[in-house]
Design a protein around this nucleic acid. Sequence first.
DNA 1: GCAAATTTAGGACATTTGTCCTATTTATTA
DNA 2: TAATAAATAGGACAAATGTCCTAAATTTGC
Lengths: 204, 204
Amino acid sequence: MRTKDKILVTALQLLNEHGVKSVTIRDIAAEMGISHGNLGYHYANMELIIYALYEQLVKEMDAVIGSMQFSGIHLQLVYDSNKIMFTKFYEYRFLFIDFVAIGRSIPKLRKHYLSLQKKRAAEFFMLLMLLKSNNILSSKFSDEQYGQLIQSLTIFGDFWISSSELVYNGKKDKRVDYYLNLFFALILPYLTKEGQKQYGMLQK
Amino acid sequence: MRTKDKILVTALQLLNEHGVKSVTIRDIAAEMGISHGNLGYHYANMELIIYALYEQLVKEMDAVIGSMQFSGIHLQLVYDSNKIMFTKFYEYRFLFIDFVAIGRSIPKLRKHYLSLQKKRAAEFFMLLMLLKSNNILSSKFSDEQYGQLIQSLTIFGDFWISSSELVYNGKKDKRVDYYLNLFFALILPYLTKEGQKQYGMLQK
DNA sequence: GCAAATTTAGGACATTTGTCCTATTTATTA
DNA sequence: TAATAAATAGGACAAATGTCCTAAATTTGC
């Protein structure tokens, strides 16, 4: 692996473990066994590394979402795509754990995230509308209510990791599933009979 | 005001504005126009200041919640108590914005928060059960489902500020109301006819 | 195989920050 | 009022950190 890539791998590991505040250029160099001067040659400072990792996450998400086959609308689809997203998010958890601090110190990242979120919210809204017209989500709730639901789901999606970092004390390999389950519990009361049937048959 | 109290006031203002990462003992002293040596005499480091502010928040919350009159069970009660909590949280928003980083660097704070959260969740569960038995919340959802709802509401309650810090661009004085409204939208589908009626009549 | 470009190591330096220390001033109390 | 305690100012210092620089080593392209 090229040094430049290896730096990102090591940085990600250290950032996830110790948090943005505690990791320095020199820490990463030491962990890799290279000089801090060398590391500075590839990435002059932590912000560049963090932004590179953010770009990497976005890229990986696009790739994995893009490769999904949308064969007919079904609750399983929502489940699968969210499971992938939750898992990826957790791989890059330091970003979410220090979300605001990072957004504050790297305006470019914040700006990009905002437009990304807007796009994702619009896609998700389309998906919900589709589920609604296919009698999976109930029609008795207004589009505005579904819009609000999406906002809350977005907040949950962005911050379940932070919460779990402080609170979760279950098995490590069940963490994502646990919060994915909570996420779906938020959608549960909006389901029709048919939706509930599909929910019961979800392959988790 | 005593210097020791004034330090907390100034620290809170700076922390809310710039975040934990960017505020130092010396910054606070400079803002107050006193020497850093003097500030060190009262609080040796930032962690002591942050913990003191956390204690202050907990104390203020206890006081304000304790003074509420619980005259009969009603959705308005849930609304009012949450409005108070949301408002207080926002006054001390730096705590929530850097929740994980603070919890990591001040284990005592993390530990206290965990036991507090446990207590609050239990109280909230009792409240929901009461609303359920008073036909405000629907009986068609299981206690387990209400338990999950509380967990999601807790995550929302702890992190709406972080999200708003990055996303919200509405009027400043409507911020708390906006997220309180989203918070209640999460409860909406669990309401009975009677509950919905009370919801429509909420004095916001 | 050799010149040029890239990569690497490590030193130097300024800045920031927490921490400690002492001297002075202000407040308290007996 | 005198002595004691509390509060304040500001200097000193070490550790950490980003940043810059140079020289050596390695790789690349012709």
